[in-house]
C-alpha cells in the first residue's frame, strides 16, 4: 500500500435495502485533487455521505491516512482532518456569517490557531468580511459557497470532500472557486475529493478523475486522459 491519504476499496452502501454504490474504489494522494464525475443519480453525493458516515456502508473499507474509518462517528471526522462540505452548501442560514465560521473551529483545542484560521478565511474571501453580521439566508449563492468552503478551512483539514460547489452558480463564480481550490492545494497541500456535474470545470483542476455510472466506477484515470477520451465523454459525461 502506498502512502495514500484516502484509500477506498469495495465500498457498497445505500439507503434501505437497495444499494446505491457497488464496489466503489478510489484513492486520493496527499495534495491531490480527485474529481468524481457522473450523471444525476450516479451515486456521487451518496459516495461522499458514505465516506463521512452520514450514510452507513454495508461493505468495503475506507482508510484515511492508513487508519480504518469504520466506526468513526460523524462528529469525530473533522478531528481526523476531513471536512465535508455538503451539497446545497450547508450554510446554517439562521446563523450569521461569523457564527457559521466560528462553528467550523469550535471543535479545535488550539483556540489561537482557530482564531487565526478564521482571520485567514476573511482575508481569502473579502465579501464575507464585509458581511460578518449578515444571516446566512441574506447571502448570494456564491457567497454561501464561499462561506461553506471557508468554514471547512477554519478546521484546517487535510482532505476536503466537496459536493457540487458549482451548483446554481454563475460560470465566473465557479471559475473563481476552482482557481481557489487549486491555489489552496499549492499553498497548503490540501487534498480534495470533488464531486461535480460540471465536468469541464472539475477536470480543469483535477489530477485524477473517477467516473461513476449507476453506482459503479466505470473509469478511473488521469484527468487529462479523461478529458481527451471522446467515447467516455459521450457515453457518461454528456459532452
Amino acid at each position: 500500500m502506498t502512502g495514500a491519504l484516502l484509500q477506498v476499496d469495495g465500498l457498497t452502501a445505500g439507503y434501505g435495502a437497495a444499494p446505491v454504490l457497488h464496489d466503489v474504489g478510489l484513492t486520493v494522494q496527499p495534495g491531490e485533487i480527485v474529481a468524481v464525475l457522473g450523471a444525476n443519480g450516479a451515486g456521487k453525493t451518496t459516495l461522499l455521505r458514505t465516506l463521512s458516515g452520514l450514510v452507513r456502508s454495508s461493505g468495503g473499507r475506507v482508510l484515511f491516512d492508513g487508519a480504518d474509518l469504520a466506526g468513526t462517528k460523524v462528529e469525530h471526522l473533522v478531528r481526523r482532518g476531513i471536512a465535508h462540505v455538503p451539497e446545497g452548501r450547508g450554510v446554517v442560514t439562521e446563523l450569521t456569517v461569523d457564527e457559521n465560521l466560528r462553528l467550523g473551529g469550535l471543535w479545535r483545542r488550539d483556540r489561537a490557531d482557530a482564531r487565526k484560521a478564521l482571520d485567514e478565511v476573511y482575508e481569502l474571501f473579502p465579501p464575507l468580511a464585509q458581511r460578518r453580521t449578515f444571516a446566512g439566508h441574506q447571502l448570494s449563492g456564491g457567497e454561501r459557497q464561499m462561506l461553506a468552503l471557508g468554514r471547512a478551512l477554519v478546521g484546517r483539514p487535510r482532505l476536503l470532500l466537496l459536493d457540487e460547489p458549482s451548483l446554481g452558480l454563475a460560470p465566473k463564480v465557479t471559475g473563481q472557486i476552482m482557481a481557489l481550490l487549486r491555489d489552496l492545494r499549492e499553498r497548503t497541500g490540501l487534498a480534495v475529493l470533488l464531486v461535480e456535474q460540471n465536468v469541464r470545470s472539475a477536470l480543469s483542476i483535477a489530477d485524477e478523475g473517477v467516473v461513476l455510472a449507476l453506482g459503479r466506477v466505470v473509469a478511473r484515470n488521469k484527468a487529462s486522459v479523461l478529458r481527451d477520451d471522446a467515447d467516455l465523454r459521450h457515453a457518461y459525461l454528456g459532452f
Binding site: 452520514l54 460523524v74 462528529e75 469525530h76 478531528r79 455538503p86 450547508g90 462553528l103 469550535l106 478546521g155
Partner: peptide
C-alpha cells in the same frame, strides 16, 4: 447533519 460534520 451539517453540525455533526463540523464536530458538534
Amino acid at each position: 447533519d451539517v453540525s455533526r460534520l463540523l464536530g458538534v
